[in-house]
């Protein structure tokens, strides 16, 4: 009997992917359900911190600043929803490809660990950014989310994909080279 070609990734990895997709759906639903409450809370929080947001006390100016922050906050929640959905799928598929096709076990474990941790935490950066906007403003909130989440965990996910691509390319080259040696 031949060994099955596709292998399931480890159960915890599958769970992480599925939970992330569930969080994305939950986040999307909550975002629509509590849109008004969220906007009201964010507006109140920002009005309590006029210096953070550069509010000048003139309605024609401040309304635009508040509107931009609210649009960005909403955008952050939408991007969390989108990225969590996408990264959940990417974690499952990448881990499955690595589990099935990467020969070296240490490399396989590294790829699976990097894509699971990187892929699962990266979308949370958007959630963090949205949460930081009312307290720290758009730009500072973005900088914090970047250095705390997007750069380290996004890099981990990208590194996993590169390693997987490199491992598959190396195996492909080895297999072609092996076949050409066997051929008469």
């Amino acid at each position: 009997m031949t060994e099955p070609r596709w292998r399931l990734p480890p159960i915890p990895v599958l769970l992480v992917g599925v939970v992330l997709i569930a969080c994305a759906e939950l986040g999307g639903g909550a975002m629509a359900q509590f849109k008004l409450e969220l906007a009201r809370w964010a507006r109140g929080t920002m009005l309590a911190r006029p210096h953070v947001h550069g509010l000048v006390g003139v309605r024609d100016v401040d309304e635009q600043i508040l509107d931009e922050a609210l649009v960005k906050l909403d955008g952050g929640l939408r991007l969390f929803h989108l990225h969590a959905e996408g990264m959940g799928t990417i974690i499952i598929v990448t881990a499955m490809v690595a589990a099935s096709l990467v020969d070296r076990s240490a490399l396989r474990r590294t790829i699976v660990a990097l894509i699971t941790v990187g892929g699962a935490v990266y979308p949370l950066g958007y959630l963090l950014w949205s949460g930081l906007i009312p307290f720290h403003g758009i730009a500072r909130g973005k900088r914090l989310a970047e250095w705390l989440v997007w750069i380290p965990f996004g890099s981990a996910a990208i590194l996993a994909m590169w390693l997987l691509a490199a491992a598959l390319a190396a195996q492909c080259i080895r297999s072609v080279a092996g076949r050409s040696r066997v051929a008469p």
Binding site: E68, K72, L79, W150, I158
Partner: peptide
């Protein structure tokens, strides 16, 4: 080079743009 590329790629995530609306 790989690390530099990864950091710049991770740094280049988009967060949407804002077009001021009419009041």
């Amino acid at each position: 080079a790989a690390i530099a590329t990864m950091i710049s790629a991770a740094h280049a995530h988009h967060v949407g743009s804002y077009v001021p609306r009419d009041n």
